[in-house]
Design a protein around this nucleic acid. Structure first.
Length: 140
DNA sequence: GCCAACGTTGGC
DNA sequence: GCCAACGTTGGC
């Protein structure tokens, strides 16, 4: 059982979109090896924060891994040798109150988070301590 | 809108 | 194999 963080621009795909989907959503479009490797490491039942980048800049909800890494259906460019992969996720619950990036940065206990130190990695691991800390901050 | 950070590409 | 140049991301 591991914890993760999925980043998305809400204008492109928001947590509400995931809630509305009410089922598996293929987390396609990731074109970064570190992020792909993180998805390969996921197992069914792993949980991940859903973070809104650019607009909102806050952890807004929790999602669950509902399908193991599989080929990204959008990665079929002609001649593309690399097979990108992705997991499927589904919404679990929204935070009663979103935890903003500012709040995370203000927490010494969260200073080691990848979100703080490498904001560009779109799929990140989160430690159990970080997970529980942010859940408390968000009212869960 | 700007720019720093990061990852990738390509010349050498 | 190194590194400069470039494109993209995302915070500010």
């Amino acid at each position: 059982m591991a914890y993760w963080l999925f980043k998305s621009e809400p204008d492109v795909f928001s947590f509400q979109d995931l809630v509305d989907k009410a089922g598996p959503e293929e987390w396609h479009g990731v074109r970064n090896y570190a992020a792909r490797n993180n998805m390969r490491a996921m197992v069914l039942g792993d949980l991940g924060f859903f973070y809104h980048s650019v607009k909102g800049k806050a952890v807004v909800g929790i999602a669950e891994v509902v399908a193991l890494a599989h080929p990204d259906s959008t990665a079929h460019e002609p001649g593309e040798k690399v097979v990108w992969e992705c997991v499927d996720i589904a919404a679990v619950k929204a935070f009663p109150r979103p935890v903003t990036l500012d709040e995370i940065k203000a927490e010494p206990a969260l200073a080691q988070m990848i979100l703080v130190n490498n904001s560009r990695l779109s799929v990140q691991p989160v430690t159990k301590q970080e997970w529980e800390h942010i859940c408390r901050m968000g009212g869960l």
